[in-house]
Design a protein around this nucleic acid. Structure first.
Length: 780
RNA sequence: UGGCCCGUCGUCUAAUGGCAGGACACCGGUCUUUGGAACCGGCGGUGGUGGUUCGAAUCCACCCGGGCCAACCA
């Protein structure tokens, strides 16, 4: 795409996000949205929002609104470029008539079953149905009557007339239109024929002037039809082209409308916007800031390899954003009463507590009341502390965040032995920020707290991942997705206590509850007086992780639990399993062997290449894969004479420039290759530069000597000349030279490469290496 | 089983045939009135075997592994 922009191939970049409005968008869609809108932004182009609503049976207005909401929430704007595929039905219809007129589409009156059956399988070609050879007139007539509503559902379809024997199943006369007397959510009953994806999508892109149509990997096979339709309808270059990227897979979650829906229906979650859902509505309700989703999309990137992303990455993105934007307040989830014995009932001090830690450059603070009765987190006290415990213990001290150091003098227990209350004394000289605040108490822990008399009671919903296996969709025989649900994905704490300041905060404020995580008020259940908080994400916790791995490893071993293996690694293990046993015989392609059996002459050449010419069986195999290829080799050999050299050129380099084409399409023949090889031998051109010459010949044709002259690639092997270039290069990379002399010999490639670049590939690399070695070895 | 796509640190992702780099995770340290954040350091990778080349993650071959395709869904 960068290349397209540089070449000026398109006037401007146009992308599109093309959802079907048949469900709620999820985090996977967010990746696509960020990609499409992000590219448009980056290249100064535009991105369309287009609803791909060609299937009247599944689509609803509710979903188009949900999708628009989600995109706006993510922070993107389609401006005036809002489109609906259903608005293009008339134009699509016209295109179909063009195809019919060209004899490239026909009305098939077979049943669905018959068509499927006649399509063949991946190993057997398809065969025509009885209607494939209808006349243009008959097809046109039938198609018009299909539109007019003369036929019931399924009576006819319009199919492209492509190639029933294509190895690509999608090219075996795909269905373009089907009859559906269904009510469309936007077009009502205006149409009773509806186009299918492969037919419609490329046209939609083309109508809108899209330049880059980005879709997920599984549409790879569809690209062939995409191009076929556009070419045959008559769209000319520069037109839209399809490019594929990897869809987002997130471990421990499902990213699929099809799988998400049943969870909602069965009541395993509270709805499409349940905060545990991977829907954008769910993420949004949970409190995830949109900026974090965008950051996450950037972090995972795009590629063509199927990837499974660790949800820890999303969590990192969320924390990264919230750390900078969420004010700190204090809340106690599991309260334990602390009585400050050297304070009287009426003693209340308003302590100043900044909203931001020292490393977040923001201003602001609130008052937190401090009095005789406090509440601290139950787990911040331990009668029998583990090693390294830095919180309150009997007789020990701890600092109250923004307040004083207290000492635990007495532990009061109930009849059942449960700790009911801690009786402590505070040290008035240690108020946070005061002169004596740190005196002699380095290394002391700090805990959060609230004043019992002033704290507000709140419900806090602690969310965790919805599933407890990396790939929830992978279920054993007879199992169900539901079996993989994490039973602790939601823990509700009903009597948490929170400092009173939050009552007056703006709606939508995201907080950090110090030391416990990021939270915000649930936008549905937490409005008005109802204090209901959702945990957005925990804080990173290096302590409990350590404690857990230390304490419970034996337990998990005993219970037979196996550490979850990542999906990628599992597949790699499978790769390694079969031992690599190099077979004794030559490795030849079965396909080419077949061709040789069919053409005895090729078989004979194979034999001759190995026995007379002394080529390796592998090379001989490739060279005899077809008559054309073999002829090319022989023509080159006739010109040059050395079989090894020519074989290497043909096998490794000619095939490289060929791409998908055949040698017969090359604008030069074997003879020219032979000449080129001779020019390498006689020192006219370096082998390296000769590759560039070959590429040029493949692109423009021509005689090798002429191309060399035109490109100015005559070999430079003169030591003095090279020495000059070498010195220039070394002078430009002083620190690399030092590293090289320090032992990093892999840098030689860099130097050689730079010299080659400076001479545009004309230098003799062997000579360069020699000069370089001399220079770098000397004066060290 | 035919065709197509894809294999780079545990994970995600870079590297016109020329320095295998970044991020997350993990481990260690510094700092710290959040066991947070920040900072510093460490661990760790080109699926395999051959070939071409001065030089291969990149080009060629074979093998291994993964994915997609036989809806009148998208």
């Amino acid at each position: 795409m960068v290349a397209h922009v540089r070449e000026g191939r398109y006037e401007g970049i146009v992308t599109r996000f093309p959802p079907e409005p048949n469900g709620y968008p999820h985090i996977g869609h967010a990746k696509s949205v960020c990609l499409n809108f992000g590219i448009a932004q980056e290249f100064g182009g535009r991105c369309h929002l287009r609803f791909d609503d060609t299937n009247p049976e599944t689509e609803e207005m509710e979903y188009v609104e949900a999708i628009k909401d989600a995109i706006r929430w993510l922070g993107f704007d389609w401006g005036e470029h809002l489109y609906f595929a259903s608005d293009y039905f008339e134009r699509m219809y016209d295109c179909a008539e063009i195809l019919i007129g060209k004899g490239l589409a026909y009305v098939d009156s077979s049943t669905e079953e018959e068509i499927r059956e006649a399509r063949g399988t991946v190993t057997e070609p398809g065969r025509p149905t009885a209607f494939r050879d209808r006349s243009v007139e008959e097809n046109l007539d039938l198609f018009r009557r299909m539109r007019a509503g003369e036929f019931p559902d399924g009576a006819h379809v319009l199919r492209g007339k492509l190639d029933l024997a294509s190895p690509n199943m999608l090219m075996r006369d795909p269905v373009f239109y089907r009859i559906r007397h269904a009510h469309h959510y936007r077009r009502g009953d205006a149409w009773c024929i509806y186009p299918l994806y492969d037919y419609a999508h490329c046209l939609e892109d083309a109508f809108e002037g899209v330049t880059h149509s980005l879709c997920t990997l599984e549409f790879d096979n569809n690209r062939e039809i995409y191009d076929w339709i556009l070419d045959n309808v008559g769209f000319e270059e520069p037109r839209t082209h399809q490019y594929e990227f990897n869809r987002l897979n997130l471990e421990y979650t499902v990213v699929s409308k099809r799988k998400l829906g049943p969870l909602v229906k069965a009541g395993h979650v509270a709805g499409w916007d349940d905060p545990r859902m991977s829907t954008l509505a769910g993420l949004r309700r949970r409190g995830v800031p949109p900026e974090a989703v965008r950051l996450f999309a950037d972090m995972v990137g795009v590629a063509k390899t199927e990837s499974w992303v660790d949800p820890g990455k999303l969590e990192f993105a969320i924390r990264d954003v919230l750390n900078r934007t969420a004010p700190r307040v204090m809340a106690v989830l599991h309260p334990l009463k602390v009585v400050i014995t050297n304070l009287d009932d009426g003693d209340v001090e308003e302590l100043d507590a900044p909203y931001w830690p020292h490393d977040v450059a923001r201003e602001g603070s609130r008052k937190v009341p401090f009095g005789r009765e406090l509440l601290i987190e139950r787990e911040d006290f331990a009668e029998d502390p583990p090693k390294g415990f830095r919180r309150l213990i009997p007789g020990g001290e701890v600092r109250l965040r923004y307040g004083y150091v207290i000492r635990c003098d007495e532990v009061v227990k109930g009849p059942d032995g449960r700790v009911m209350e801690l009786r402590c004394t505070y040290d008035p000289d240690t108020r946070s920020g005061s002169a004596g605040s740190g005196s002699g108490r380095k290394g002391i822990g700090t805990i959060h707290w609230v004043s019992a008399a002033h704290a507000l009671t709140a419900e806090v919903r602690l969310y965790d991942r919805l599933f407890d296996t990396p790939n929830p969709e992978e279920v054993p025989e007879g199992g169900d997705l539901v079996d993989n649900l994490n039973p602790e994905s939601l823990v509700v704490v009903r009597d948490a206590r929170i400092e009173p300041s939050v009552a007056s905060d703006a709606a939508g404020t995201r907080y950090q509850f110090e030391r416990t995580g990021y939270f915000w008020r649930d936008p549905v259940d937490g409005v008005g007086d109802a204090l209901v908080f959702n945990r957005i994400v925990t804080l990173k916790d290096t302590w409990s992780g350590r404690a857990v791995s230390g304490d419970t490893s034996d337990v998990s071993k005993a219970s037979g639990e196996v550490a979850p293996v990542s999906i990628r690694e599992a597949s790699r293990k499978a790769t390694e399993a079969p031992s690599q046993t190099p077979t004794g015989g030559p490795r030849v392609s079965e396909e080419r062997a077949g061709k040789r059996r069919a053409d005895p002459e090729l078989g004979a050449r194979m034999l001759r290449y190995v026995e007379e010419l002394g080529l390796s069986p592998e090379d001989a195999d490739i060279l005899t894969g077809s008559r054309g290829f073999s002829d090319f080799f022989e023509a080159a050999l006739a010109e040059h004479g050395d079989a090894q050299t020519i074989a290497a050129w043909v096998v490794n380099d000619v095939r490289g420039v060929l791409g998908r084409g055949s040698v017969d399409d090359l604008p030069f023949g074997g003879m020219e290759l032979g000449k080129l090889a001779r020019l390498v031998d006689d020192g006219t051109v370096s082998r390296r530069a000769a590759k560039d010459v070959l590429a040029e010949m493949a692109a423009e044709g021509g005689d090798p000597a002429t191309v060399i002259a035109r490109l100015g690639l005559e070999k430079v092997a003169d030591t003095d000349v090279l020495a000059g270039v070498v010195d220039t290069v070394l002078a430009a990379w002083p620190e690399k030279v030092a590293e090289y002399r320090g032992g990093k010999v892999s840098l030689m490639g860099l130097f050689v490469g730079e010299v080659m670049k400076a001479t545009r590939g004309a230098a003799d690399p062997k000579a360069v290496r020699a000069v370089l070695a001399a220079r770098l070895g000397a004066d060290s």
